[in-house]
Nucleic acid binder design. Structure first.
Lengths: 155, 155
DNA sequence: TAATACCCTACCAAATTAGTATGGTATTAC
DNA sequence: GTAATACCATACTAATTTGGTAGGGTATTA
């Protein structure tokens, strides 16, 4: 139903927690306790955001995780892609494989445009925005206002 | 992976086909042949868009389907919702059920804003836009241009 | 009354996702 | 150099969702 995965959501929660404590390293257990997530789930989440370069992991005693990038530099798109790979609304626009319904498929390729718009929106919203609801509200209204001013060419 | 379902895509293809012939009624077989989809799949697609009121069905001999609304009045959002129900990126923002991680969930509620933006974009693009790629390109550029002019408040 | 063509429900198989378990490896402290 | 800490990698299971299919029912028209 056009949903993002739960893990993506968890990822945002964890990043928020890491942003909260700044440079202080936190272990898996710390994070689990702070967020209310289970330890195994946190582990899974950490792998994704470490691989994406959003978080730095240090092993061994005295190890732990700390955020690698300033919250204002982490976009929602970064997080979504860390968990769900490259975004593409349809198979057509993503892979290079041809779809079966060749004749009608020229139409489907238009999803690409919608896809780009979605990417743009997700890229323009940062972890910092998310963390401050009142700021995010303002941002939200700004974008909606702009969209409302757009005259559709064919109407 | 933040995908729309194949059926939704098919729905758009079928609606395009119906729009092509205007007021002429088409049977399931006609549509299947014209689009390259299988008959059972077309049946499933038709149910969704008939229920959504986008297409009118007439039974009996001489029956068939015809488009119920002008293509310029059918938004991509209409089609997506016909197949995938109300759009909500997270469970939190959709249902009234409480999520388990209570403390951190205030953060998750910010998905709502992103959700609204997505709805807005999908609602502003019509079947007519989709059918004319060059028009849709223009539209696309317009929206992206507007988005680019937005200054994020916290940067 | 028979032919046409939509309608409804249910079923099956494949893919995806969430959650869990387990053994391995790097770093630090003593 | 050994033990404790804590991250790492892989794999497995169960639940959910999705796509595709089947079969019998009902309305309309000739």
């Amino acid at each position: 139903m056009l949903r993002i995965g739960k893990l993506t959501d968890y990822g945002l929660v964890v990043l928020n927690q890491l942003a909260l404590v700044g440079a202080v390293k936190q272990s898996t257990d710390d994070i689990a306790q702070a967020t209310g997530l289970t330890v195994p789930t946190v582990r899974k989440v950490m792998k994704a955001i470490v691989d994406a370069g959003l978080v730095i992991a240090q092993r061994g005693s005295k190890g732990g995780y700390r955020i690698a990038v300033a919250p204002a530099q982490i976009s929602v798109l970064d997080v979504v892609q860390a968990f769900e790979g490259p975004i593409s609304l349809t198979e057509c626009s993503a892979d290079d494989n041809q779809c079966e319904i060749t004749e009608s498929c020229s139409l489907s390729s238009n999803w690409t445009g919608i896809n780009d718009l979605l990417l743009r929106v997700l890229r323009d919203i940062t972890l910092d925005d998310i963390r401050h609801p009142e700021v995010q509200d303002t941002l939200h209204h700004q974008i909606v206002d702009q969209l409302q001013r757009i005259q559709l060419v064919n109407l």
